[in-house]
Design a binder for these strands. Structure first.
Lengths: 195, 195
DNA sequence: TTGACACCACTCTAGATGTAGTACTACGTT
DNA sequence: AACGTAGTACTACATCTAGAGTGGTGTCAA
């Protein structure tokens, strides 16, 4: 078990790419070595086994997902109405969709979590924290809607992203934008005044 | 390539179980043979290769998912109000959740579809048909809400099921029921009269 | 000089694939 | 009733692949 944290991070990022591109089946130490352009055996030196690697991928993913402070601040500017939420949700969907490999890797991790208790614990904790943070942010910013609103947005947008990333022709790309708008308009109460 | 359709179906059902339980990595001809309790080499005789098998699993899944005629009829009884939709959605979520292995296998297939054009085509077609059928059923039954409503229900409930099946502790089991209710109440317009 | 790491090479192992060969069953033919 | 044929089931095998893990050597920095 090597210590070099930069190298470990590089390996994990490579692992995320492999996981997204080749699937759980293609995720091997070797493949990670190749993707990270390091000599064979390196990944093997950094991770005890596949289990260990998968868990560390989970950590790494959330490390990379730390929300952009600039973005958070942007959410606090201007009026707190429904249009604002719509814009925030568009930004959110775009940001996640742009990290395609990360999101696909996370889906793979979810499925793996089905069989790996430690991974399951990790993901459960992170996602709960994520949902809670969204709720807190939303309500503290005085945006319209309550905790349930935020959860519903979370549910609908997540699947919308799944659909977009895995079967892009079910909802054609040019309808995605409208769908995000629809989601917000239908889920948020009232015609746009704050709370 | 053998013809016996009963045996082929049994193999595919076994494959669904393996896919859900062991993941894409564990899905091998051998594993399917074992699961189906047939001699080694049988799956190899029935499928050209893994690709072929995965595609056939996709077909088989939708074969098994044919909606229950009794259930469809039940949706047409009684008043067409919001309570009715809530009940239908509860039934839907329960029905899918009960076929846990099938749904998990389908998620695996979605991820595989990322790399397999034929599988992607198949799933796209089936899911589109499924969504369209839901919309048609919903509107023709005179249930409250329009096409967008149905799509939003589809989005939110799908992710709710993902959450339930992969990370059951994010939303504890006893809150799922309330969440389904919330989803319907927030997404459906008005206080419950028909359309 | 020591320790941590990068790099390289090698072996071991496991597991999967696909096929060749045999046996069985059912059906049709004469 | 005997025979032949086709389609399967079953078994065993030969092959192949690739990945895991480790030991050894070189390198750099404290």
């Amino acid at each position: 078990m090597r210590q070099n944290p930069a190298r470990r991070a590089a390996l994990l990022d490579a692992a995320i790419e492999v996981l997204a591109r080749e699937g759980a089946r293609g995720l091997t130490f070797r493949a990670v070595d190749v993707e990270a352009q390091v000599p064979n055996g390196t990944a093997s030196n950094y991770f005890d086994n596949r289990d260990d690697m998968l868990t560390q991928i989970g950590y790494r993913f959330y490390e990379r997902l730390e929300p952009d402070p600039g973005m958070l601040a942007a959410g606090l500017e201007g009026p707190r109405d429904r249009a604002k939420v719509t814009q925030l949700m568009h930004d959110l969907v775009d940001r996640i969709s742009r990290f395609r490999s990360g999101y696909l890797a996370l889906l793979e991790l979810r499925l793996e979590a089905t069989r790996r208790p430690e991974l399951r614990r990790l993901l459960t904790e992170r996602i709960r924290a994520d949902v809670d943070a969204n709720i807190r942010y939303h309500t503290e910013a005085g945006l319209p809607g309550d905790a349930t609103t935020v959860i519903l947005l979370y549910l609908a947008l997540n699947w919308l992203i799944v659909e977009r990333l895995t079967l892009p022709d079910v909802f054609p790309e040019d309808r995605i934008h409208d769908l995000v708008t629809d989601v917000v308009e239908r889920i948020l109460p009232g015609p746009g005044q704050s709370a």
